[in-house]
Nucleic acid binder design. Structure first.
Lengths: 246, 246
DNA sequence: CGAACTATTGAGTGTTCTCAATCCATGTGG
DNA sequence: CCACATGGATTGAGAACACTCAATAGTTCG
């Protein structure tokens, strides 16, 4: 089940050292985490935990992308979280998963067994502080997403997603990527539809429309180039000048 | 601007003492909060802070309901938070409001100036712990809301909102209210529409439809009676047995 | 009593969904 | 090595749900 590629990386050289839940830890604290951590890998499409299942670990996404999904009785599903490297998985104090957690790409996670981690959290305010900060950021992202789901048109939804992906891909910061930026859409059309509250057909149609209108250029199924980034931002319906868009 | 009704209530006798951000504080810690707190009141419709404005205080809703709203350039608005008594307002570490915060009803808040509160937070882990827990709960609520916005029909959205209001009103817990439960919808049709990602006309039509179908009984514009609560839950599209619905 | 606001209801439109066919790339077994 | 199955994506046609525009009704308040 767990194919260890990151078998024993030192936290010092970890790519998410300064953004993950451990970001504020000093060397001593890091040593404690180092002692209880282990890595797990997942293949694209693999489910990490099912909603309602026992979840005996918590952890951080190190590489790749995971999604949190909610499903209704009749099968309608909505993505409620898009987890990128450094994002935290699981909820301290709750042993049961509230959502399906699925690897969207090849995925590596840095995991901690629940009990030792929660015990460590009590004694290490730096971890709880960082987790609070990250949770507040996620709440902001969720609220931005609510505006998208409740009020944006299909075209605006697609454009918004492309901007989010492009921003995260380009520099790791929120800075505006350069014109001509190229990236891969890490989600299938179906996953994209679940993210945006659309059907996969509508996603496909709107991507085709943006291509037809010259807003984006496609390379294969997943590759996307944005000739004029400002033009794409205008398509999102958001404030064109520095609106907060996580 | 601030009409003091709760001029000087002791924290001991505060109605939200055991659910708000102060819930875990011991007597000493409570005394420190008591020393820096002050009350503010707002009238229905009054805006507490505008998005982008300086926000020099944080606090808890004591009585009444407030909403967090996001607006697009062209005027489309989406509610992204519904704040009930004990809910926390503002984000530690950020001096600028991210959303419009509006009193939906007559509202009383227990406020703390930003600087002293943030300083206190550093020295009082019980406050940060509770705030983390509350933020995680809000994130769960936001994700439930995302499912509603992205995947539910107008009728399901209305039914879901009624269930949420009824649950919060009945016992303060998540328990299922009794059949025949009566409550007032604390939002105008327009605010309801902004909550649900609908137009106010659609809200009105769906409420009429639920009434016509005998799912609810209306008393005036705002009063609602639910003769068969299970029937209402079925209309939400959610799992009928104990699905988590905040 | 009229103004302002909130809510209801109607008619027609339109965006998105549903159902369905086709295409393409990849991988597998005869 | 080809035939075929599989999964992802695109495109079309028609239907449905929610929206827009508009008229009307009920409440509250001056």
């Amino acid at each position: 089940m767990t194919d260890m590629t990151f078998t024993r990386i030192q936290c010092d050289s970890c790519p998410i050292r300064h953004r993950a839940v451990c970001a504020r830890c000093d060397d001593d604290e890091l040593a404690l985490l180092e002692a209880i951590k282990y890595y797990r890998s997942f293949e694209p499409g693999q489910t990490i935990v099912w909603s309602g299942d026992q979840m005996d670990f918590l952890g951080s996404v190190v590489e790749g992308i995971a999604t949190l999904n909610q499903t209704m009785e009749d099968g309608r599903t909505q993505m409620v979280g898009l987890l990128l490297p450094s994002d935290f998985v699981g909820r301290p104090g709750r042993g049961t998963a509230a959502y399906d957690t699925v690897a969207a790409t090849k995925l590596t996670m840095c995991c901690f067994r629940r009990a030792p981690f929660e015990e460590l959290m009590v004694r290490t305010p730096h971890i709880a502080q960082r987790l609070l900060e990250m949770t507040l950021d996620e709440l902001d992202a969720a609220r931005e997403w609510m505006l998208l789901l409740g009020r944006k048109t299909a075209r605006e939804k697609i454009a918004s997603l492309l901007v989010i992906i492009a921003r995260r891909n380009s520099t790791g910061t929120k800075a505006t990527p350069t014109d001509g930026a190229h990236f891969d859409l890490p989600l299938t059309r179906e996953a994209t539809a679940d993210y945006l509250g659309l059907t996969l057909e509508t996603v496909s149609r709107q991507i085709s429309a943006l291509k037809r209108d010259g807003v984006i250029v496609l390379e294969g199924k997943r590759g996307i180039t944005v000739p004029d980034f400002h033009r794409l931002i205008e398509e999102t319906g958001d404030d064109t000048d520095g609106g907060v868009l996580v």
